[in-house]
Design a binder for these strands. Structure first.
Lengths: 116, 116
DNA sequence: TTAGAATAATTCGGTTCCGAAACAACAACT
DNA sequence: AGTTGTTGTTTCGGAACCGAATTATTCTAA
């Protein structure tokens, strides 16, 4: 199970992906923002500010500010939890899904181009 | 040649790597800084400020500031080019090599853990 | 019902980053 | 020599980010 990568190939893969992201990404997400976005889209809901802060091991204001920025960019949206109105549920958007799909294609292509 | 990844696996790989980096990395390199570091260590020398700026398609001050930060952290070092003293040659360090080796291991492990 | 806990957001001061422009040092060429 | 071009750095104002503390809202449980 899984993929066997040499150390060299692992670094080259990281290099190629990073270069593509620096080139293409006008959104310029920080590592934390990207991690939040990926978590919201991949892991099973619900996603709260507190849960995300624990998952990433950062403070809650960091999550709040990251959500502010990505909400403005339309990459995800907030909704109040009607069960417990203290909670904010972070939800996906079409724009966010498209953005991550582009990112996934970068990874796909760079992995496919690796000289094994 | 290369590795075939589904879109889902590509995203999960990115997610797992990002999460590890956010967790472990006290150095907290920006995407640009990481890309510079990987370029210096992987591509064939010499590496100049101008060359790196062109490669990443960013301005030269961005490179200068990134080199400042990473020099302080000991991840790489600058040396004047004796052939053309306008140039600064960016060179590797032991600390930088160790840092990238740790990063490569993260990628290796997360790729190995993928459910294909 | 009321005191305490939990949640997310906001404020605060300080730091860092950015892009554009100006700058200093050096090279190349007439 | 002198002029022009190149290279890397620095400066400047504005914007973004951070951690810690505070606030407002909501829930929980005595």
């Amino acid at each position: 199970m899984g993929i066997e990568l040499s150390l060299s190939n692992a670094l080259w893969l990281l290099h190629d992906i990073s270069l593509d992201i620096v080139h293409d990404d006008d959104k310029d997400l920080s590592p934390r923002q990207l991690t939040i976005l990926l978590t919201v889209y991949l892991e099973t809901p619900p996603h709260t500010v507190r849960g995300l802060a624990e998952k990433l091991q950062v403070s809650k204001p960091v999550i709040t500010r990251a959500l502010d920025a990505m909400s403005v960019a339309g990459l995800l949206k907030r909704r109040r939890d009607n069960e417990d109105k203290r909670n904010v549920l972070v939800q996906r958007t079409v724009a966010g899904a498209l953005y991550l799909e582009g990112l996934a294609e970068i990874v796909q292509n760079r992995a496919a181009d690796l000289r094994i």
